[in-house]
Design a protein around this nucleic acid. Structure first.
Lengths: 109, 109
DNA sequence: CTAATACTTAAGTTTCTACTTGACAATTAT
DNA sequence: ATAATTGTCAAGTAGAAACTTAAGTATTAG
């Protein structure tokens, strides 16, 4: 069971790179092979494969090799790790503002 | 007017670093000064200031100096840039699955 | 006035990351 | 069988990023 901390680290590290985000963007339109993925990205296929490894380890992408073709698709659970982290921060911040507002309009402590 | 593309790049780059995420986490509990922020992070104050510059340029954090103390607080708009990017990917992916499901259960094209 | 606090800035170091090259393996097409 | 396609792997390189050190500035406390 991978700690949530580590999962968050990996997901945000993965999304920190613009090329990897471009890959996720592409895959959000549907699954495609590694070479199709690589074509518009002006880096070598080997570099794309390295990005895919990071994306897969982070849980953002799932890949499956059939014959000589590896097909890649988005793993929505990966994205939700990042989404949850953000929402948690926001909710803490907003709760704090609420408490502060309550204290200002209704100062009974 | 900062292009949305650049904003997304900066925000995800900023969130890609664990120390900067720790800073955002701390700040989500309320505004604090640079030195208070630095205390639990075993890096020098200078390093923290450098992270804060990146966080501020990305729009995730706002700081204000009064006297000799710089107070830092979260800027929720920054987080929403990241949130929106994620939600956009997810919605594309889910729409695609819907179309696919419709085609399977109701194949009239 | 002096000392302590709270940063700020610049420069240098180290560590990490993305990328390339080149050789190779497996699968599919001719 | 041979060639083309699709991807894999390891090693090396260049540039970016994180961090430190050291010296300096502005503000506040004693």
């Amino acid at each position: 069971m991978l700690s949530q901390q580590v999962a968050v680290d990996r997901v945000f590290h993965a999304l920190g790179d613009p090329t990897r985000r471009a890959i996720v963007e592409k895959l959000s339109h549907g699954p495609i092979s590694v070479s199709v993925l690589a074509k518009p990205l002006d880096i070598t296929l080997a570099a794309v494969v390295q990005h895919l490894q990071i994306l897969e380890e982070s849980g953002l992408v799932h890949t499956e090799k059939i014959g000589r073709v590896r097909t890649c698709r988005i793993e929505p659970k990966g994205l939700s790790v990042a989404e949850k982290w953000i929402e948690d921060r926001r909710s803490l911040w907003e709760r704090r503002l609420d408490r502060l507002g309550a204290l200002l309009t209704d100062p009974e402590e």
